[in-house]
């Protein structure tokens, strides 16, 4: 643990988010975790989890995540089609005296099973993905993976966050899915602080605004990291100044960092200047959280 934290117990959950993919969420969360040394990194971007490519965790343990989907007993089914009409997701079809269930469209609401007058429907477990836990140096790495084509990753995120309910002396970094959909809301639900990563373009401002609205809605304390900063004017910075948003860090655009990152390497471990950059960011963020905790307990 970095010295500045002293002996004080650290127990914080920091979510890292951005309005769009490719902004630098994973860069920031992975390097913060590496800078913190003893910490936990949770990859909630379950459709495209990339954090493990950087952290390369070892000793992987995994658990499959299932949802319940309907199973039909065609002997009992009398073809009333009540379930077909009820299903708002169109996951059922009745063809040639047989009910067909489309697993990949089913949202596991359980409605069809509840309403079947013939009790022809029961439920079975269906694996939609998994969570993996491994170790990378002193970082505990949790990865959620949704199988391609599944309807929703929310059950996987729920599992990841339950497994990582607050522990003492532990910093937890949550790498969120991009955007501001319900899956992102689920990911930040229990976060103590949100770090919004923004690019220095008009596009970046538009995308930042989306997650800004989201964290405001959830009343989360937050700060912005400006990524890929050039010498030019930075509209994202302007936006923060106008809205009175705290800028917690600036990451310059530089070729070395870009190359390290595109090769899925952890910048903090490769170059002292990046270690310093992310350690400073970590310090700022931790102070912000402690400040929040003191002023808004």
């Amino acid at each position: 643990m970095p010295d500045f934290m002293g002996t004080q117990a650290i127990n914080m959950r920091i979510a890292v988010l951005s309005g769009k993919g490719g902004t630098g969420k994973t860069l920031v969360s992975v390097n913060l975790a590496a800078a913190a040394k003893v910490s936990t990194y949770v990859d909630c971007d379950v459709e495209e989890p990339n954090g493990h490519l950087f952290l390369k965790p070892e000793g992987i343990q995994e658990e499959e995540i299932s949802v319940r989907i309907p199973k039909v007993d065609n002997e009992l089914c009398n073809g009333c089609r009540k379930c077909v009409d009820f299903c708002n997701f169109n996951a059922l079809a009745y063809i040639k005296d047989k009910l067909i269930v489309f697993d990949d469209v089913c949202h596991s609401c359980g409605g069809c099973v509840l309403l079947c007058p013939e009790k022809a429907l029961t439920e079975k477990e269906k694996v939609i993905g998994k969570v993996q836990k491994g170790i990378s140096d002193e970082v505990t790495v949790w990865t959620g993976r949704l199988n391609t084509g599944e309807a929703t990753g929310i059950p996987i995120i729920k599992k990841l966050l339950v497994e990582n309910s607050p522990q003492t002396n532990q910093l937890t970094f949550i790498d969120c899915p991009p955007g501001s959909a319900c899956i992102v809301m689920e990911s930040i639900k229990d976060a103590d602080y949100c770090v919004l990563v923004a690019e220095p373009t008009l596009f970046g401002v538009h995308n930042l605004n989306m997650v800004y609205e989201l964290v405001k809605l959830f009343n989360k304390p937050f700060g912005v990291v400006l990524n890929k900063c050039l010498q030019e004017e930075n509209p994202a910075e302007q936006f923060c100044l106008e809205k009175n948003i705290k800028i917690v860090g600036r990451i310059p655009f530089d070729n070395e960092l870009g190359t390290l990152n595109s090769n899925a390497e952890i910048a903090v471990n490769k170059n002292e200047k990046y270690r310093e950059l992310f350690s400073n960011l970590l310090e700022t963020v931790t102070k912000e959280v402690q400040h929040e905790a003191a002023t808004n307990p």
Binding site: C87, N90, A91, L92, Y94, I95, V105
Partner: peptide
């Protein structure tokens, strides 16, 4: 106008 599973429902109509 289905938000999801449009193909399944459309196919049911054809059948």
């Amino acid at each position: 106008t289905s938000t999801g599973g449009a193909g399944i429902k459309a196919a049911q109509i054809i059948v």
